[in-house]
């Protein structure tokens, strides 16, 4: 109960600081956007047909809502994002520990991985995994896309994680060691709980960009939200409507997610 009330207070504080002014600003913005869009569509001679969009979100069949192409695409995007998130956290974690390890091989391996992944475009990586490495390892379409995304995001997340770990005062390590805690226990009980708290904001940024980057898997013909949007807009010529809707769907997913993480951050803050 109190958690819900707390969450609501948090959202209210963030969103409605000074109601009247915010509302006025918002209305003004809408007017400007509306004017700009109508001018440009007039110039293009675009004929808006918003009424044709809803069926690509939901249709009613025998009184029950059935997901249209865009929502189906969104669900597929969720699947890719969820699997990639777990996998990229695993990559990030292992790479960060390797880079911080004493092992020469370990640090070298981690550095090569980081340099290669971060200095090549994601699109190229997706193609390479799908066309070259995927067939060799017997990876399917979905698996190779997920692995490519996870390798990419994992490299950025690992650097964030490493920075979080390194930023802790070395006294924390020394205190843990002087108590006889093993390295594993020290990471689990002392270092990671503090490091993760510190890196939540930049990590959220990476999760957001992971969800956005799932749109690139449409390159290997996976039916994610972007792929479906491409198909639907090609079929219907509702280019503006479909792409605006698609953008709104991404926005509608990612904004609440960022807010959620900020709320978690606020919940796990260390009392002082």
């Amino acid at each position: 109960m109190s958690a819900v009330a707390g969450a609501w207070r948090f959202v209210r504080r963030r969103l409605f600081r000074s109601p009247l002014r915010d509302v006025l600003e918002y209305v003004l913005l809408l007017v400007v956007v509306f004017v700009l869009v109508s001018i440009s569509s007039q110039r293009l001679g675009y004929y808006w047909q918003w009424y044709r969009v809803p069926r690509y979100l939901f249709t009613l069949q025998q009184g029950r809502p059935v997901a249209g192409e865009l929502i189906q695409g969104l669900l597929y995007t969720f699947r890719i994002a969820a699997v990639s998130l777990v996998l990229s956290l695993v990559f990030a974690f292992c790479t960060a520990l390797l880079r911080l390890s004493q092992s020469l091989m370990g640090t070298a391996l981690a550095r090569v991985y980081l340099e290669v992944i971060r200095n090549t475009p994601l699109v190229v990586q997706i193609y390479l995994l799908y066309f070259v490495i995927g067939p060799i390892l017997g990876l399917g379409r979905f698996a190779s896309a997920v692995v490519a995304l996870s390798l990419f995001e994992g490299s950025y997340m690992s650097e964030i994680l490493r920075a979080g770990i390194v930023s802790l005062h070395r006294g924390q390590w020394e205190a843990a060691h002087s108590l006889g805690l093993s390295t594993l226990d020290t990471y689990r009980d002392v270092i990671l709980p503090q490091a993760v708290r510190r890196i939540l904001p930049p990590l959220t940024g990476e999760v957001v960009s992971l969800v956005k980057n799932t749109s690139l898997v449409s390159l290997v013909a996976l039916n994610d939200l972007s792929m479906q949007a491409r198909v639907v807009s090609a079929d219907t010529f509702l280019t503006f409507e479909i792409w605006f809707t698609t953008a709104l769907i991404y926005l509608a997913i990612l904004v609440p997610m960022s807010l959620l993480v900020r709320w978690i951050e606020h919940r796990v803050a260390i009392p002082s």
């Binding site: 005062h169 006294g171 924390q172 020394e174 205190a175 843990a176 060691h177 002087s178 108590l179 006889g180 093993s182 009980d189 002392v190 709980p193 503090q194 708290r197 260390i270």
Partner: peptide, 19 residues
């Protein structure tokens, strides 16, 4: 590890676990 378990240490900066 055996020695660390038998030897306690107190630091200038306390080094308590803040979380």
């Amino acid at each position: 590890n055996e020695i660390r378990q038998e030897v306690g240490m107190v630091f200038q900066q306390f080094n308590l676990f803040p979380h």
